[in-house]
Design a binder for these strands. Structure first.
Length: 382
DNA sequence: TGGACCGGGTTCTGCCATATAG
DNA sequence: CTATATGGCAGAACCCGGTCCA
């Protein structure tokens, strides 16, 4: 509203992509007169807050930025006298970002426009140490602008990369890490070090031989671990250990296997998930040891939400599969309820005998499953 | 050579709270 | 005081196919 005061200026701005601090043209006192939001009335005891930067608003409008969203997220940016929205836009454009992408990036993380070109160039180069193309970086920025822009500390970023390499993570690991959990690289190195130390300590406490290797292994198995708090990881390990009554070596084995996958679940979620599974299994007449067994062989079962899990199990049971079979091949729970339901129906039609043939057929790719079905259709005696 | 075993690929941000800087 | 930097949180699966062996 307040922003569109002069079409003349709009035209002018759209022509020149030359970067310039945006506010020069509008002295502050003038802008304050334009903005009714903060009339410095007599009753207002606080210092008059500096008003929003008028020309900045215009620039952002031109860029297609969602001003309302941006203002809600980082209002401070709008009151800055000098910003670099044009420079940022041009920079991202040369890297191959579309107009829409740039607008979306700024809408979601307005502070991006406070970074200088030098800063941007440097940060981009650091990311390019890990990524091979600009396009990859652009796609991450589009996905998560905050990951790239939240920190203005390029030295820290460099230290992070060095640190992660020093852990023995190779180029491919680094690439996966930055792709999957880009926030990791905006953490302070200290924070990342803390998590690594935490993992090493856990290994040592459990009597592990090689804490460094252990930490590295957990990170490469669970790329989200470094953007979690050490408290979360510790609590989850305690929860697992206590509720399953695991010995140190059992716990260690679990973590070195697929247990790493569920370490980053929120503490409450893990507990809720565990309790649900426990209850469900008790209801189905399983023994306490079965619970332990299924979690050790298929920890990801705790990743599945209570409702989904119960539905899946019921679905399998209704389809003529026994709990005993599920306990032996928990991986069938990997597949969606929809997938399972469909397959059960197909198998029922051809009279597939789970007692005789087992349930492994449910744990196979679509291609393999279809091939199998075709064979069953031609020679139904199976 | 069918099928069991196993690991890998995909993907996870956007908000809030708090400490710190200015 | 305000703005920035940073930590932390909730949220919640599914699918594919290489390989090896009986």
């Amino acid at each position: 509203m307040a922003a569109v005061t002069g079409g003349r200026v709009l035209l002018h701005l759209s022509r020149s992509l030359v970067l310039q601090p945006s506010s020069r043209l509008f002295p502050l006192k003038l802008a304050s007169a334009c903005l009714p939001r903060r009339l410095c009335s007599a009753s207002d005891q606080t210092q008059p807050v500096s008003p929003e930067n008028e020309s900045l608003l215009e620039n952002l409008n031109l860029m297609g930025v969602d001003i309302k969203m941006a203002r809600q997220r980082q209002p401070g940016v709008f009151r800055k006298a000098f910003t670099n929205e044009k420079g940022l836009a041009q920079f991202l454009q040369t890297k191959g970002a579309s107009r829409q992408a740039i607008a979306s990036i700024v809408s979601r993380y307005p502070r991006a426009i406070t970074r200088s070109i030098e800063h941007l160039e440097q940060r981009w180069q650091l990311w390019r140490n890990v990524f091979t193309t600009d396009a990859e970086i652009v796609s991450i920025l589009d996905r998560s602008p905050e990951s790239f822009f939240r920190s203005s500390d390029n030295d820290n970023l460099e230290k992070n990369i060095d640190f992660l390499i020093s852990l023995g993570l190779n180029t491919k690991d680094l690439h996966r890490l930055l792709t999957t959990a880009p926030r990791t690289f905006s953490n302070s190195v200290e924070l990342n070090k803390q998590m690594v130390e935490c993992l090493e300590d856990i290994c040592a406490e459990l009597g592990g031989e090689n804490p460094e290797q252990f930490a590295k292994s957990i990170i490469s198995k669970n790329l989200y671990i470094l953007i979690r708090s050490t408290k979360r990881v510790k609590t989850n390990i305690e929860t697992l250990k206590a509720s399953l009554n695991l010995s140190d070596s059992e716990m260690l084995a679990l973590l070195q296997g697929h247990g790493a996958d569920i370490l980053d679940l929120s503490n409450e979620y893990l507990k809720k998930s565990f309790n649900n599974l426990q209850q469900k299994m008790a209801l189905l007449g399983c023994r306490r040891n079965d619970l332990k067994k299924i979690i050790i062989s298929y920890p990801l079962i705790l990743y599945i939400g209570p409702e989904t899990l119960n539905t899946k199990i019921d679905c399998l049971l209704k389809g003529g599969i026994t709990m005993k079979q599920i306990l032996e091949k928990p991986k069938v729970l990997d597949y969606s309820t929809q997938n399972i339901t469909g397959r059960l129906e197909e198998l029922r039609r051809v009279g597939y005998d789970f007692k005789k043939n087992g349930i492994n057929i449910l744990d196979s790719s679509r291609k393999r499953f279809d091939a199998k079905m075709e064979k069953l259709a031609t020679s139904p005696d199976e």
